[in-house]
Each structure stands twice: as C-alpha cells, then as structure tokens.
Amino acid sequence: MAVPIVIAHRGYAGVAPENTIGAAVRAAAADETAMLEIDVQPAACGTPVVIHDVRLDGSRDGRPLTDASGLVWETSLEDLRATRVLGTEGTVPTLTEFLAAIPETVGVNVELKNPGRSDLRVGDPLSNGERAKRREVWTPFVERVVEACAAFDGEFLFSSFCEGALAAVREIAPAYAAATLVWDDLEAGLEIARRYDCEAIHPPRNAIAGTGLVETSYAGLSEGEREIDILEAAHAEGRTVNVWTATNWHQFEQLAAAGVDGIIADYPGLGAGSSAR
C-alpha cells in the first residue's frame, strides 16, 4: 500500500500559531512533512500576505486570532506586520517573507483564499460568461502571488475553492500544478478539476467513500455514504487526491487505508502508527 504524503495544514495549526513563519520553520523541519499548506490574500496595497480568515478579529477555540480587527484587504501592510497571532510573537507575514524563511526542499500548497473582495463564488462551476468575469477578478492578485513565488525554487501546488482563481492560475502560470478544493458538491469539484485539467483534487475527509468518516458531517457534507466515489473517479483520471483535514491518528489511518495520495494534517506524527507505513 502506498504511503500518503503529509501536508502541514497552516504549518500544523494544532501545535503552532497558524500561517506564521515560526510554524512554517518548525513544520518544515519535520522529516514527515512533504508540503506546507498556507492561505494567501492581499493587504490593502495588494501585497500577498499569509493568513486564513478574511477578518483579523476571528477566533480559534475561544482565543482571538490576532490582536487587531477589520478586513485583511483593508488593512495596511505595516499594520498587518504589527499584529500578533493567537497571543504569540508570530505576525502576519508577506508571502515573500514566508517563502524566504523555509527550505526549498519542502513543497508549498498555496491556497488562493481571497482576491480582496467579499462577493466570491465558492465551490460553484461557472457558466461561460461568468468564467471570464471571475478570472478577471482574480487576475491582479494571482499575478502578485506568482511574482512572489518566482524566487522560491521548491515545488508549488496552487489550490482554491473558487473557479475564478484556478482560471487565473492556468492563464498566468500554466506550468504550476493546480488543485480544486471541494466543499459540499463532489460532482462540481470533479467538473472544475476536469475543466482546468487540475493535477490534484482536494476533498474533505468525510468525502472518501468506504471510510467511517462518511458517517460524520463536516465541511458542508452531511453524514451518509457518498453517491460519487471521488477517490476512484479522480484516480481514474490520473489526478492526485489530497484530503483535508486530519486532526487525529484515527482519521489519518482510515484515509491512508483508503488509498489517498496526501493528507492535510493539523498535527505532526499522526501517521507514525499507520499500518500503511
């Protein structure tokens, strides 16, 4: 049985302040880490910064995400650099700073989270007319992201829940690998992956048929067996399947046994006792 690669979710967000340089350096040093998964969106000036939430005043388990407030894309780069993440000394880094801090031996899954606006189309296949408009929405930001990535000689995988982002990636940087992130519609995820010939597809953990995880609700999917075997369908088309997000060894074990190619994990070491190893 093939062993899935381990992708550190926001730099193993379960053990370090997510999407910070400190988390990235620590995660990259772990032998098991094949890739780091990060989220990018623009500061007010358009510079790509590494942060998940669109608002700085979000929370994690009752703790403030940062000591600032407001929308990320309305906040100056200077103010973003002055924030503190989850009560630590970690700040919101630019994508350039983040990449400069990690070794080029580790890959980076760059999730295109938001181009700087609230009217996103998440998880929806777009009509021909909408497709061009949404690509234009994403193009300026994706250009800035690709520019920031140019100095890093490691492996990149660009992913997004938004078709417009993937359309922009394919137009601006077709040499980079791309993945569609799936929310609550497995068929839509496959359709978008086919449309852009994505190298990978990223479904939620409870989308994988034949595992006990399908009996749980998560990421917009209710419990129950799936009508589509997304793993089988993607593999039949030659696409890599990286599943999000494993938070314990039991989830990791089930996903590994099912034959997924990669597991996006909140914690290091989840696969240490896996029978797939």
Rank of each mutant, 00 (worst) to 15 (best):
V3Y: 00
V3K: 02
V6R: 11
I7V: 14
G11A: 04
Y12S: 10
A13H: 15
A13E: 13
A13D: 14
G14I: 02
P17L: 11
N19V: 12
I21P: 01
G22R: 01
A23S: 14
A24C: 01
V25W: 01
A30F: 00
E32Q: 04
T33R: 14
E37G: 08
V40D: 08
P48M: 09
V49G: 05
V49I: 03
I51Q: 07
I51H: 14
H52D: 05
H52F: 07
D53E: 14
V54D: 09
R63I: 07
L65Q: 08
D67V: 05
S69W: 13
G70A: 02
G70E: 03
G70K: 08
G70I: 03
V72H: 03
W73C: 07
W73Q: 04
W73N: 08
W73H: 11
T75E: 05
S76C: 09
S76L: 02
L77K: 05
L77M: 02
L80P: 06
R81I: 14
R81T: 13
R84F: 12
V85M: 15
L86D: 04
T88M: 11
G90M: 02
G90A: 04
V92K: 08
P93G: 15
T94D: 15
F98C: 08
F98W: 10
L99V: 14
I102C: 01
I102A: 09
E104K: 04
E104I: 05
T105W: 06
V106W: 10
G107T: 11
V110K: 10
E111C: 06
N114D: 13
N114I: 02
R117S: 11
R117A: 08
D119F: 06
D124N: 14
P125Y: 13
P125F: 10
A132S: 06
K133L: 04
V137E: 11
W138E: 07
T139K: 14
F141L: 08
F141D: 02
V142Y: 13
V142W: 07
E143V: 06
R144H: 10
V145R: 12
E147I: 00
A148D: 13
C149R: 03
A150Q: 15
F152W: 09
D153V: 02
G154D: 03
E155W: 02
S159V: 04
A167E: 12
V169E: 04
E171I: 02
A173E: 13
A173D: 10
A175N: 13
A177E: 10
A178E: 00
A179G: 12
V182S: 12
D184P: 03
E187P: 05
G189R: 15
A193K: 10
R195D: 13
Y196D: 00
Y196P: 00
E199R: 03
H202Q: 12
H202Y: 11
P204L: 02
G210E: 03
E215C: 01
T216H: 07
G220T: 12
L221Q: 06
R226P: 00
E227I: 02
D229F: 02
I230C: 00
L231M: 14
A234M: 09
E237M: 09
G238H: 12
V241E: 05
V241A: 09
W244Q: 14
T245M: 12
A246R: 11
T247K: 15
T247D: 13
F252I: 09
F252H: 11
F252G: 07
L255G: 10
A256M: 05
A258N: 08
V260Q: 02
D261A: 05
I263T: 03
P268R: 07
G269S: 02
G269V: 00
G269I: 03
G269L: 01
A272I: 00
A272F: 03
G273N: 12
